[in-house]
Structure formats: C-alpha cells, structure tokens
Write a protein that binds this DNA or RNA. Structure first.
Lengths: 224, 224, 224, 224
DNA sequence: AATGCTCCAGCTGAGC
DNA sequence: GCTCAGCTGGAGCATT
C-alpha cells in the first residue's frame, strides 16, 4: 500500500535520449550531459513516488479527522533540537510580552528559565518583592528549579491525569501549580486519555469550521 | 528615507514597447496586450520599491539587535484573528500533549478553555477529583472563568510586573497562579520593563549564538 | 483606480499596540520593537493593496481572452537584459541540441551567433563545405552578419508582414530566409496585424483547451 | 550508490514517541496520531536521502562545467508533453511577436504551424502575395509540410552536421533553409560533435561569467 | 476538474 | 569560509 507510485499523470519522460548514448561516446560532453539528466530524472521520479505516499498518508489522516495543518506544524517542531525549540519559544514569548500580545497565556517555562538562567537562585527576594496581595504560602515558580523533574514523578502525574480524565475531571482542574513540571505531565495524561474515547475522534481534535466572521472575541478587549 | 526605490538593479524593463502603441491601435489585441503588460510592470515596480523599504526596516531592526526571524513570526501571528490564533494554539497543544511533546510547558490557557468550553462552570467536582495530594487550598484553574479579566485588574498586574522588575524580582517569582489572567499581565509588565534598561538591547533580546552541539537536554530523557 | 485596497479580508492588524506606545518610551527596547512592527505592517498592507491591483489586472486580461501563464512568462523575460536572455537561450539551445531535443525547431539565432562569435567571418569555407546536395545559390546563415539589420529595413519588413497578413498570406509564407533579421520583423508585423481583427481576440491568441490525451505527435517520431 | 543518506545534520527526529505506543492503545486518537507522524517522518527522511543524492549529482555536473540552471530548464521541458511544449512555445512566440519582442529570432516552427493549422494549404496565394522582392525561387516555409520528415533524411542531416563540424564548418553555414526539418537535425549533429572535443567541456558549454554591466548589445538597436 | 493563490523550502548571492 | 537574508520555483489548497 505504500510503495507504488501511481505515476502522477505527468508527461512522457525519457523520450528519445537513447540514440544519443550510442557507441562509446559517453566521454563526450553530450554523452555526459545525457547521463546526468537521466540520473536526475530517475531520482526525481523516485522522489515523487514518495511524495505520493505522503499524500496518501495525509489523506488518510484527514479522513480520520486530524487537522493536517497542525500535523505539519508538529512535524516541523519535531525536527528541531530541543534547545533550538526552547530558544525560539523563549524569544517569541519575550517579544510577545513586550508588545502586549501575551493576552491571557503567560510566559512559557522556557522563557522564564532563559531570562533567569544567569542568576543565582538565592537572590530572588532582593528588592521589593513583599508579595503583598496575590497568594502567599503557595509554591512559586522559583520552586521550578527545586523539583528535579524526576521521571517517576512525571510518570505518576501523567497517570493521574489519565485517571482524572476518566473520572470526569476537567482540564481546568489540573492540580499542579504553574512552574511545576508535573503540571504539563498531568495535561499529557489527561489529553491522551481524552483522545481514546470511542472509535472516532472526539470533536475537540477536529478543526473548528473556522467561524468565518471574526469576532476578535479576545479575553482582553483592551486596545479598542 | 522611506519612499525611494533604489531600482534594484534589475534588467531594463520597458524596452521597446512604445512603438507598438503607435496610432490608435489600442483596440487591437496587440495593443491591449501591451497595455496589460505595462500596467503589470508598473505595479510590479511599485511593489518592489516597497519591498526595498521592508528590507531597510529589517536591516535597521537587525542592527539594533532584534532577531528577524522572531519578528517575522510575530508578524505572522498578528495577522491572525484572535480566534484563529487561539484555535491553532489549542489544537497544537492538544496534539503535542497527545504524543507527549509538551515536555515541561503545560497546556496553554487557550487549549484549556477550548476543551472545557461546553461545560458549565459549576460541576467541576463531579467525578473523583478529591484533590488529594497536590496543593489544596490554592485557587485552581477553575477560577479562571470566575475572574472576568477586568481590564483594570490586568492593568494593575501589568504595572506591578513592571515595578517588580525594577525592584529586581525575577520572572520566576510571578505572584499569580496558573490560570489567573493576571499572571500573563504581570509577565508583560515585567518584560516590557526589562527591555528598557539602557541605550541598547539587553542580551536576553538577542538571539543566542546557536549552541551548535545539540544537547537534547530535554526534561524527559526518555527516548534516547 | 489603482490605490484602493479592498482589504483582503485578512485579520485585524493593529490590534492593541497603541497603549504600548504610551509616554515617551520610544527609546525602550519594547517601544522600538513596536515601532518596527508597525512600520513593517504598514508596508505589508501597502504591498498587498498593490497585489490586489495586480489580481484585478490579471482578471481583466483573462476576461479578454489572454493566457495568464504566457503573460507571466513574458514579464519574466522582459526583466532580463537582452544579453542575459540571449545567453540563456543559446545555452538552452545548445544543450537541447546535444541531447537531441531540438526536434524540428532549429537553433535560435542567438545560439548560432554565440558559437561563432570568436571566429573571423571570412574563413567560412575552410573545411569540407562543398554544400553538395542541399540548396545552393541560396543565401546562407553566414549572411546574417553581412546584413547590418538597418532599422529601416526591419521596419519595412514589419510593414510588409502586416500588409501580407491583410492580403491573406499565411505565416508559413514568410519571404525571408533563416538568418535574415527581416524574417523576424516580418513575423512581428504579420502577428500584430492578425491580432487586430475585430472586437475580441482571435482564437489563436487563446489557450487551447488542453488536448487531454497526450499524443506525442512529434514531428520526429523517433524514439517511440 | 543511491541509498546512502548521510543524515543531513538535521535535528533529532524520533525523540520520544515510543512510550506513547505502549499497550494496545493504537486504536486511540493519540495512538493513531503517533502512527501517522511516524509514517510521515519516515517518508520525509527517505525523501531527503534522495534529495541529497540529487545534490550530489548536481555538484558533479557543475564540477564538469555544465550550467545547472540550464539543466534545470531542460528537465522541466522534458516533463512536458510534446504537445504542451509546442502549445506554450507557440503562444509565447505569438505574444512576443505582438509586442515586438521577437527581436532577431523568428517565430518558431511550432508557432508557424499552429497559426496555419486550420487553413487548407491551397489558398495561400489568395490576396497580394506576389512575393516581389525577397528571394524567389527558394523553397518557402510552405514546403515544411511537404517534407514528411522521413526519419532517414533527418538522420542523414544529423550525420552531415557532425561531419561538417569535424570539417570546420561553422554553425552559421547550416545548408538547410528555414522550415526544413533537416535544418534542426543538422544543428543537432553539429552541436553534439562539437561537444566531444577533448577531455573537458568546450567553453561554449559553460556559462558566460555574466558581464555584469549590461550593454543591451542587441542586434536590433531599435527602441532605444 | 481546472486554475489561480499562498505558502514553503531549497538555492543563490552577499556580508562578516 | 560560513552564515544569512532574499528569491525563485513547486506543491498544496481553495475556489469556481
């Protein structure tokens, strides 16, 4: 099912180069040219066999309800080094923050770590951080570095996320605070679980029809 | 300084069409063709004047230390409706979670809201969410919907972020919990403040040299 | 008529950067960033106004029966120097000849001149050119250089082409031999004349519906 | 030699999807997603192995002095049906003629045939074709259809071209008139022969350094 | 089903 | 010499 070309209807390659190869003229300029061209055409045809296969896979995925654009984004993400990805995310978050585009979504952990990378962990409270009104007594982001992200803890969190999902807990109820790596792990578990309901994809995995009229229904109706 | 073309050295457009326009032959096929071509070339030349201007602006930005690639990303983001942007982020986060690529960064708020959109806010505890071990007493994500994102509250948070930044507080010390919209606002204030230090850009805004050796320093050392 | 945008339905640019410009903070990193972004977006929007105009012109041309793809090719050709264009044509002809793809269409004049550039015009007969069977007494390509392409001669030929076209002469009856620059000029006149028939485009200017079945109806039925 | 990758230095694909495949969860949304992603990545990696091979071949060709851009053009040409190619050339020639861009190079045979296709061959002389001054007695283009392009005649012409080339005849001395299919065949023979001189490519096959200053050294100094 | 548009990625030329 | 921005060509997608 995966290795069969289908000859994308294109024109008749390999038309009439054969007679030019005649004799032992391969050392000739013309002969060598023909050689190159044929090698290139052969490679090209192999390539677009594979491209056809890609198309088939995509069609299949689409038929199951996945969003192709998102999958493409994923693939691009995956071929980045983790470091590169973090670097980009951090920079993007910083720039977004600077122009007030964060709207609602806080800085990613990558950005947080980046901007704090050079500092030593002890001097955090220097300055005026009396932490007055928000919610004291709660572990802050600073603890992020304190939790070594033990793989077993993460696995446990993931498992709990799955269990919670099964139990009907909503995503918003993630029990871990910001900055805790288990927060992400719980999310992973929850999401993976939610994707497995029945035979076909739950609607959350599908792309919304688009809502062609754009409402700018931003959470922060600020600028206007 | 911004509207002056510089004639990108390209070839001699408008070579010898003039004589064809002779007479009143504009009703002719040939005449009309020439007309179209000239209009198109004129538009094209105006377009690449503007492209030149773009180049200049980019060069200037780069000279000040900004990362062009990130700026490009920003621009692309900004020409999306807020809804569209949220939709994509949500979907991407979901897919990432499903294949375990979240590593460390939790689901964005957009994703959280999306998957919870249909539910009514009151039934959060349905199921087994006894909230056993994590960190009780702390406002959860569920409160996210409870806080109507009053613009003045956000502005205050932003201001506090800026003040904290001035006072030496680190980003990691963001006093607001996950799910609280003020968390993002505080980040915005902090970041904007940090960008204003001296004459030139703080190093955090510049792109890291690259780190050519790929470390895969992922939080989850799994696959390797 | 050329500067009216029509707002290509894209998203709401310029969302909420205004507040960030507040105060005299323009010297700030964030402020400068916003400045760059706004300049870039403004330029971008101007650019796609122009792109819209291009679209309109193309639509108009298509409506009159012209083939857009051909027009695009023309535009690309026209932004090449004459020298560059000749260089490319010559090289392409040479390569085509070498692999036997000329089929039917002889080397262009550009190619001929290129390969003969270094030689002095007098020694043409050196070697075995006894010209045995073909068609003696006829002016050869060699004369190409002998005719200095006087502009008035070309104009005359063009005029004669137009006259002949009006008189019902077919293209195939071009009275000038290969290598004579007037041959092309006559063609020009003939074609331009033929395009002027009535109100709308003669069918020869339109693209043929496609001929979906590929016949390889080559003049040289060789390779097959 | 065609299947050896060389791992184009890209990032660490296939990072940590394995654990997600655990259990028999393949029916799950998440599991299927992982499956698709892995298939796509596998195909992608095969594709860029081939692309690497292409790059190698091109590098080799370039090292021997061939012009890559011309080769690319050839490849594109070759994946067109003969009919399509002819159609495009004809249309392009017609449009060029109409706006006076033919300069020097006459209409290709394809164009000539196209515009004469519908007509019956007998009525050519209708009108004023007294053929007054040019060069009577010489076979005209009209004979083009009269010569059935017998393959053996073409082969002979090709052979003669090669022989003439060996004998020192210049390209300009092509003994066949315009419209005679043997003209192209002779060119083919001549060019192929010329390409075979010594070990390396004759300079005519290389790309001219470009002549950065544009001279518009056109044969027809017309419009200017 | 055909076609025009848009995006993306590879290739090319410059600049440090 | 390497990197990086610009550009060109192709492929997918939406549209009619």
């Amino acid at each position: 099912m995966a290795g069969h070309a289908k000859a994308p209807k294109k024109g008749p390659r390999a038309q009439r180069t054969e007679r030019n190869l005649g004799g032992g003229r391969n050392a000739t300029g013309a002969g060598r040219l023909v050689g190159f061209i044929e090698r290139l055409e052969r490679l090209a045809s192999e390539i677009d066999e594979l491209k056809n296969d890609v198309k088939e896979v995509k069609a299949e995925a689409k038929a199951e309800g996945f969003d192709l654009k998102t999958i493409a984004a994923l693939l691009k993400l995956r071929q980045l080094t983790d470091d590169e990805r973090r670097e980009r995310e951090a920079l993007l978050d910083l720039y977004k923050a600077a122009i007030g585009m964060l709207d609602g979504t806080p800085l990613g952990d990558a950005a947080r770590r980046r901007f704090d990378g050079g500092k030593e962990p002890g001097d955090g409270d220097s300055g005026g951080d009396e932490d007055d009104g928000a919610d004291d007594g709660v572990p802050r982001d600073g603890d992020l570095s304190a939790q070594p992200a033990a793989e077993e803890a993460l696995a446990a969190a993931r498992e709990r996320g799955a269990a919670d999902a099964r139990a009907g807990v909503r995503v918003l109820q993630n029990p871990f605070t910001a900055g805790d790596p288990r927060r992400a792990a719980w999310d992973e578990g929850w999401c993976r679980e939610k994707g497995s309901d029945g035979m076909d994809l739950p609607p959350a995995w599908r792309r919304r029809p688009s809502g062609n009229d754009k409402g700018d229904s931003g959470g922060a109706e600020a600028g206007a």
